[in-house]
Design a protein around this nucleic acid. Structure first.
Length: 690
DNA sequence: CGACCGAAAATTTTT
DNA sequence: TTTTCGGTCG
């Protein structure tokens, strides 16, 4: 093999990052490394090459810990590493394993380590993991038990309570501070909240349940025990973290305890793309990283952009250059020139949809498949109208972000039954399952659960005298819970489904659509060996596409991508459309409280823009439909272009307007026919059938 | 005790 | 619009 020819495609900086500390054969002890990787600078590729390079030089893949932001990112990384290793070692080395068992999100890796070390820290290794909704439900149960719900003044809602708790944990800050800085309107409830959180923690422990935050918190605590920290840290020669700008204080603590001297530690990120502040992520993590070590970590900066055309990059740079604080420099473009990004004014959201759809179809005609095009938006419901139109026109699409199918009521019902059988102490699941039965409400459910706390679960159920109204349905539930533990996988799920079917039909008018979701669930289940694995994986890495669409496209078809900007992180498409680039949406009017929040919204627009390779269109509806107003329901607002593109920046854009009937961009480069009869004919019938 | 109804309040991004 | 709370009725 020639010397590292597989590194030839890298530029000088990328190569520095890849080769840092990798010399001869063996585990390769490298000092800490920080890679500041601008948008489109080949970050994933660089990280993949570094991992592959380590392997080629003898590092055991089992001793590499790769922490990514999502499962999707982890599998993409794995795919690239495999390819690079294969090309480096040649086809003859096909048997060489390159698969990395230790790659995943912080939460998933945490769960795995906690199951292994549970006994050392007094934890039941069979713990159940609650997702956010379950956690909020438990918080709600406690809230009622403590009598906080019937105060004269309204106590914060369950979701708010959980958000406060979660922030305190993830930012590693005391309640006082969190309330003062993030939730000032709840500060008056401080003592009650303190009491609530104490009881919440006790309840979780009693029930053998961990929430998302616990996975990090317990991992952090585990790493606080010196001998355990040595043991865990000693498992890995290299720890690599992707998207480091979006980690929080707790994750940083875990990392430093894992590799106190920074040996073998590599973190990669871009402060200009920090968009998870609401989840307590802190840009300080990435900025302070080098100084944690003596000597400080090596810093490599990647500024060469390989993704976007020069005009798109220039406009994006202009937007981010107005940020108050910025630590990375402007990116340099590598790709040739192209059209300026379009900044298109449309009259309202219906026109916005028309404009986007016709541009997408034009792009497809011109050779850009749907899969290479994406529509991005600030909040999940911004795509509602577009989804209707796409369905009407038979344009297949997949949506990322927003409500996941795992969060739908009927899916949760089925999962709750599985979880309850797995862990009878899990009150939230039991509560949910019991109340499915007609005649059983919160009070009866509570009593039954209390009884189960002192007796072996299935036995306890047989001794329950159900309310008269529930007498019919009761024996089936008892039989189900008795059969489940021994049923095996995935027979368990089949049993639950059979049992659930009548409840589904009784409770939901659209039972047929929902049953299809359950079929989907069964297909996913088939890939797992046990219900425990299935439940854990589904909670920690739920399928990211929401499949509330009846005609979800098959994977081999061409389909359009719809995504929240958050879920679009790390991705790229040839053509990108950004909806509602108006004040109130970007920045969200929920996030105009502090300067930091506004700056994060600016970075959000930057992230959206830098996803585009060749074509970028920002849409500015003049009228903006707002749902859920505090008073008087929905209404139209007259919107203005986002404050992040002030008049001084418009020169970087092709500014134009789009009108429904002509379908023409005025002021654009293209002038299509003044009168599009076909569009007008379609228009005649629009709305007639609805 | 549970089901149901009407009033009032909340309102984003995600592991 | 949807969720939550507090009432009333069976």
């Amino acid at each position: 093999m020639s010397v590292a020819c597989y590194l030839d495609g890298l530029n000088a900086e990328q190569r520095l990052a890849v080769e840092h500390g990798v010399a001869g054969a063996g585990p390769n002890i490298a000092g800490p490394l920080l890679v500041i990787a601008g948008a489109g600078s080949g970050k994933t590729n660089t990280l993949a090459h570094r991992v592959a390079h380590l392997m080629v030089h003898g590092t055991d893949p089992c001793r590499i810990l790769l922490l990514t932001f999502s499962r999707r990112a982890a599998s993409e990384m794995q795919r690239r590493v495999d390819r690079i290793v294969a090309s480096a070692l040649g086809p003859g080395a096909g048997g060489r394993r390159s698969s990395m068992p230790w790659s995943g999100t912080f939460h998933a890796v945490g769960a795995r380590l906690l199951r292994t070390y549970a006994h050392s820290i007094g934890l039941d290794p069979a713990f159940t993991i609650h997702d956010r909704e379950d956690s909020a439900d438990l918080m709600n149960l406690i809230r009622h038990e403590l009598g906080l719900s019937d105060k004269a003044q309204r106590f914060p809602l369950k979701a708010t309570c959980l958000a406060i708790y979660s922030r305190a944990i993830n930012a590693s800050q005391p309640l006082d501070r969190v309330l003062a800085k993030q939730f000032p309107w709840c500060a008056e409830w401080k003592d009650d909240l303190q009491r609530l959180f104490g009881a919440y923690v006790e309840a979780k422990q009693r029930q053998g349940v961990l929430d998302y935050d616990d996975l990090l918190l317990y991992w952090g605590e585990l790493m606080g025990v010196p001998e355990l920290a040595l043991d865990v840290g000693g498992q890995f020669d290299h720890v690599l973290v992707d998207e480091y700008q979006d980690t929080n204080a707790l994750q940083a603590k875990i990392l430093l305890r894992l590799k106190p001297a920074g040996t073998g530690l590599t973190v990669v990120g871009d402060d200009a793309q920090a968009i998870y502040g609401f989840r307590a992520a802190s840009v300080r993590n990435i900025l302070d990283f080098p100084a944690h070590f003596a000597p400080p970590a090596r810093v490599v900066t990647l500024e060469q952009n390989y993704r976007s055309s020069e005009p798109i990059l220039t406009a994006s740079n202009a937007v981010i250059s107005l940020a108050r604080e910025r630590f990375t420099k402007n990116l340099r473009s590598q790709r040739g020139s192209g059209a300026k990004p379009a900044l298109i004014t449309v009259s309202d959201d219906a026109a916005q949809v028309d404009c986007v759809v016709s541009a997408i179809l034009e792009n497809r005609e011109a050779g850009t498949p749907l899969k290479e095009q994406a529509v991005l938006f600030r909040t999940a419901h911004h795509s509602a109208l577009l989804e209707i139109e796409l369905t009407r026109r038979n344009i297949p699409f997949v949506k990322f972000g927003g409500l996941k199918f795992i969060e739908a009521a009927h899916v949760k019902d089925v999962l709750a039954a599985l979880r309850w059988a797995e862990n009878p102490a899990d009150r939230v699941s039991g509560f949910r399952v019991l109340q499915l039965i007609d005649g059983i409400g919160p009070a009866t459910a509570g009593k039954i659960l209390d009884r189960m706390a002192v007796r072996w679960p299935a036995d306890a159920l047989t001794t329950v005298q159900p309310p008269a109204k529930a007498a019919d349905a009761w024996p089936d539930l008892v039989a189900l819970m008795q059969r489940l533990p021994a049923a095996g996988w995935p027979a368990e799920l089949d049993l639950v489904r059979q049992w659930y079917q009548p409840h589904l039909e009784r409770r939901h008018a659209d039972a047929i659509v929902r049953a299809a979701d359950l079929d989907q669930l069964q297909r996913i289940a088939a890939g797992y060996g046990s219900s425990a694995h299935f439940l854990t994986d589904l909670t920690l890495d739920p399928p990211s596409a929401s499949s509330d669409e009846p005609g979800a496209p098959r994977l081999d078809e061409d389909y359009l991508i719809l995504s929240t900007i958050h879920s679009a992180k790390g991705q790229e498409w040839r053509a990108v459309f950004v909806l509602n680039v108006v004040d109130g949406s970007i920045p969200s009017d929920m996030a105009t409280g502090s300067t930091e929040e506004i700056e994060e919204e600016r970075r959000l627009l930057y992230v959206a823009m830098t996803r585009a390779k060749e074509r970028l269109m920002l849409l500015v509806p003049q009228r903006f439909y707002v749902h859920q107003q505090p008073r008087r329901g929905d209404k139209h607002l007259y919107a203005v272009r986002t404050r992040f593109i002030p008049a001084g920046l418009t020169a970087h854009f092709e500014v134009g307007t789009w009108t429904r009937f002509t379908g023409a961009h005025s002021g654009g480069l293209r002038t299509t026919a003044t009168l599009d009869i076909a569009a007008r004919m379609r228009e005649m019938w629009r709305g007639a059938g609805t």
